[in-house]
Amino acid sequence: MKIDKSLMTGSTTLMVLSLLSRKEMYGYQMITELARRSDHTFELKEGTLYPILHTLEADGLVTVREKEAETGRVRKYYRITRKGLKVLEEKKVEWNTFTEKVNAVVCGTSPA
């Protein structure tokens, strides 16, 4: 099932940071991993990943290094920083609160 694009806005950063909290990755790798983990539900337009990554870098949440692959292709690998991990934790809490409240409204469940 495809998800409305507007629903993904705002959560992409959380998902990217979450992926990077496990290991350093390059852009294409993140796209495929995101698709795989979400059972191909989250297939964002691939070019839009880079503005997100560059913003994270400018904010000091990730660092970048260039590495040459076996094929000779030079890739940029992104790695989460200590600050990035802290922001990820904050964003997780924020996300859990948000989904809980949305569920409370939509499904009629009572918030904890």
Binding site: E46, G47, T48, Y50, P51, H54, T55
Partner: peptide, 17 residues
């Protein structure tokens, strides 16, 4: 096709750069 709209990507990159 998977890359998306180039102008949209460019405008978003311009916000950071």
């Amino acid at each position: 096709r998977a890359m998306g709209d180039p102008a949209e990507v460019g405008r978003a990159l311009d916000q950071t750069h």
